[in-house]
Structures are given as structure tokens and as C-alpha cells.
Amino acid sequence: MSKTEKLLKRLDEIGKVLERKGGAEMLLGLGSVGMETERLDEYSDLDFFVIVKPGYKERYIRQLDWLEEVYPLAYSFRNTDDGCKILFDDGIYGEYAIFEERELESCHYAEGRVVWKAPSYTRVDFAKPSRPAPRLIEDSLDHPLNEALTNLYVGLGRYARGEKLTATRFVQSYAVGSILSVLHLLETEEPYFPDVFGLERRLEKRYPRFAANLGEMIQGYDRVPESALCILQYIERVYPVNQRLAREIRQLANICRQL
């Protein structure tokens, strides 16, 4: 049995155990085991919600017998108030959250696939979120790209002081992240499962032209100046950069390269 088949089978088996245990109303598969099974591969994992009756939430978070009955657990970690991260003994990894119905009304989540539900439970509309996901993309280049430019300047100043870790974040994370928020304005997005909670997800397939630049933009801890110069050059190709600021960034980068 392939990994993808095992993942879907494991989720079905969890649903059967929930039915026997009682107190559960519905099991929602999310992500690649939810509405996007076409992208399942050997590196996928389980991501799911369990909707329970009032009073059952803590039972299903604190007592993991409902998972152990499906397959022995090698590891579990309660990472939020609502759920855990787990590793089954056969190597299948998963993350889940337990909610009462009333809690879902205020949650942000992507549409899920109903894997199992109690016969008497009728609220299948909860498979779709009632609240829109937080907006990550921007409608104008001005703010994000100027934010990226100032990230470069501040980051290089910190690098010059010897603060290389924070410099790495400003240049290779914050500045690049700002660019991601406007990529849809700069090039055509290929249709491949965008994630409303993370612009970096599947970026290599969604924006292959931009992704070809990432190796130069993100060169690592010891090459922050070189990364900053590549990011600056990219922004200059797509936006009218203030020339004085560009000169200051290049001057700082050259100072940093000599340290």
C-alpha cells in the first residue's frame, strides 16, 4: 500500500473509532487529505478537525485512546489549546484540532472534506468556514515593495553591527515575504492549490519564474549582503525604486561584504 493510500485509510479508520467511542459529531479532513487529494504524495501528512458534542473536547484532547486504537502512537504533543501533533509508530505524522460546534463559527480554516459524521448530525455546512481567511495579498506594489526596501536597509545596518541573525531575518524573510504579497501583480500565477494561510506554500509551482530567483535572494546566514543585492535588483526590475535609497543599500552591502 502506498503512503497516500495509507493516509486516506488511516483517516477513514479514525472515523470508525470516533463512531464507536461516542461524543463525536463529524471528522473533517483538511488540506491534502481534505479537498485537495489530487496533491497527495509520499510526503503528505494528516490534517483534520474533529467536531464533538459539548463537554467532550478535553476528553478527546487529553485521552488519545481513540487514536491508539487505530494504530499505536510513537509521539504526541499538545501544541495548542485545541489539539495535538502526533506521530504514529508506522511513520504517519498528523496534526489535529478538536472543536465544539459553537467554536467553529469563529475559526479561520480552509474548506474541509467530510470523512465521517454521526448519522444524526446535520451541520455539514461546517465543512466550509463561515469566516473568511485573513487577507495576505496586497492590491498595490507601493507599500509592500517599499517595506521590502527598508527591510534591506535596516537588515544590512544590523549585519554591519554584527547582528547577523536579525539581519538574516530582515533581508531573507521579511523583505522576501513582502514581495510574495504582491507576486500576483507581477506575474501570472499557475493554478496549483494556493494556500490562504501561507503565500510560500507551493510557490515553486505557482510562480516558477519568481522561484528561479529565490536561490540568489536567500543565500543564508553568511551571505546576507549578497542576498540583499539580489533582492534589490529584482525590485528595481519591477518597480521605480528611489535612487538615493538604492545607493544607500548598495553602499551598506559593500561595507558588509568587507567585514
Rank of each mutant, 00 (worst) to 15 (best):
L67K: 02
Y71T: 06
D47L: 08
R244T: 15
L259Y: 08
R102P: 00
A97H: 14
L7D: 11
K85V: 14
N146R: 09
P119L: 03
T37D: 07
V52M: 13
L185I: 08
V241P: 14
A24F: 06
E19I: 08
Y75I: 10
A110W: 04
Q233I: 09
A160I: 15
I137N: 01
L245W: 11
N213Y: 12
L149D: 07
E105V: 07
R201H: 10
I51G: 04
K57N: 07
V241R: 10
A24K: 01
D81H: 03
I51Q: 04
Y60G: 03
Y93H: 11
E5S: 02
R206Q: 08
L149V: 06
R102G: 00
N146L: 10
P144H: 00
I86S: 00
A160W: 13
Y60D: 05
L40C: 05
R131E: 12
L252P: 03
V241I: 14
I255D: 05
R201D: 12
W66G: 02
E68R: 15
G91C: 04
D125T: 07
Y234T: 02
G34M: 03
Q63V: 08
K205Y: 11
R206W: 08
D222K: 12
M217H: 11
R161T: 10
R247T: 12
E13V: 05
R237V: 09
A133R: 05
L183M: 06
R123G: 04
K16R: 15
L18W: 12
L67F: 05
V182T: 09
S44C: 07
R113K: 14
R39Y: 03
Q233F: 10
R161P: 00
S76G: 00
L252E: 12
Y43K: 13
T166N: 00
D65E: 14
Y174R: 05
W66D: 03
V115T: 08
N146A: 02
D45T: 01
A167N: 02
L7Q: 06
G31W: 02
R250N: 02
E138F: 10
N151G: 12
C230G: 11
G220N: 04
L11D: 05
L145A: 02
V70K: 07
D45M: 00
L180A: 04
I137D: 05
G23H: 06
R223V: 01
E111I: 07
L186G: 08
R59K: 13
A133D: 01
V182N: 02
V241T: 15
S130A: 14
V52G: 06
T37N: 07
Q233N: 13
E19C: 05
P194Q: 06
A211P: 05
A133P: 11
L18C: 03
D125F: 08
Y56N: 13
E100C: 11
D222L: 14
D90I: 11
R131H: 05
E19M: 05
E163A: 05
K85E: 14
G22R: 02
A97E: 15
R10Q: 11
K53Q: 13
L152K: 05
V182W: 09
V52H: 07
T188H: 11
C256V: 11
K85P: 01
G31L: 03
K21D: 14
Y192N: 03
